[in-house]
Design a protein around this nucleic acid. Sequence first.
DNA 1: CCGAATCCGGCATGATACTG
DNA 2: CAGTATCATGCCGGATTCGG
Lengths: 229, 229
Amino acid sequence: MSKDYGQFCGLAKAARVLGERWALLIIRDLSIGSRRFKDLHDGLPGVPTSVLTARLRELEEAGVVERRAAAPPHRGVVYELTPYGRELQPALDALGRWGALRMAAPEPEDIITGSSLAAALRAGYQPGAAAPAATYLVHAGPATAWAHTEGGELTVGAGPPEADPDLVIRAGPQLRLLLAGRLSPAEALRRGMVEIEGPHAAFEAFAAAFQVPLEADLHSAETIGEGRS
Amino acid sequence: MSKDYGQFCGLAKAARVLGERWALLIIRDLSIGSRRFKDLHDGLPGVPTSVLTARLRELEEAGVVERRAAAPPHRGVVYELTPYGRELQPALDALGRWGALRMAAPEPEDIITGSSLAAALRAGYQPGAAAPAATYLVHAGPATAWAHTEGGELTVGAGPPEADPDLVIRAGPQLRLLLAGRLSPAEALRRGMVEIEGPHAAFEAFAAAFQVPLEADLHSAETIGEGRS
DNA sequence: CCGAATCCGGCATGATACTG
DNA sequence: CAGTATCATGCCGGATTCGG
């Protein structure tokens, strides 16, 4: 293995598998749900098909990704994470939170996908917020994702949810500031930055349950008691 | 930014900075303490100096690493993490634990460094174990690191500690099995796989306070109550 | 259409040598 | 000690082509 770092170190072994270009984003999308080759290609603009093929093969060989025959309605293949790959979730979420620390507003060329939105919601979930069971449908610009909270447990997905949502949130890039706690739910509605369909209280619960801090707010967020240990 | 993935996603932004070759290992070493160019080069066998230079420059530009004049006794420069870089620690630890899941025994060419050993101890620390304040000096083959626990807080470092340790542990690759919970402290001593200098109880406390599970033991470790949420 | 394989230019990496 | 210079190799990005 010429790509191995030659160190008996978990981080070194992880870096060998995850350090290749596009690998983390492929895993991000698969961590939200199973995907076909085209789904991945569409959700990762810029990845050459050759690289996507190579990466999927490597991840399969590493035991992170599994290639399966698609369910009856479709034909072809679907890719999904193995149980070993699903163990990556805490690390993915931690990395995502770190990367979001300096991500206040999108660059002009930045896109948002359903999978990345779902991953952000998962990374920001506060199990301690103890919200009532609810299903949220979130539109951030062109991207759509859903989250279902129930008894401290969270389920997320890209696209619209199967069940009818309790609350629909329609926002633009301002959603980032809401998740960072920079913008209160009431203020967001008052200024027209976010539109909702559903009870106001559900929106308050959403804002409390999903928090992705910005670097400058780290200390204050912790002292307020919303911080992650 | 041709290297950016063009997505408004924390994971994508993190991958851009951390996905370059050697970046995670450089940050790992710096997360243990400040390092000079030569320290990093010695601790990362195989990295070309040109790549190390380039990576340090990029990480500095990204605000992760800081380049400073060395403290008076020496001259030259030292590299260290910025506060922003130190925010990576939870993600580093999570990645390290994941990478260690399938790392039962070292490959023939795998080396262990003081920094990687210190990082492993940090990743495996169980704040809940509530051990008494203690300083441990750990030798794993040629590598040396120390850990100090005090009231749930942990400090680690590479090489020998400044203060006299309460317990000295001398082990080979078998230390991995001890950290995984596959080998009990008593058994390790009885079979001569680990040698200690210090009270037996301190060794028991060490084994309880530092746990880095293997994949096959994940479920049992959780049911036993030693798991990470 | 889906899931790739192929070809090609360019850049990053790895190895080695060299310098202030 | 702390890098810079040079060069062969190989991976990545982009486009096209191909089989089912």
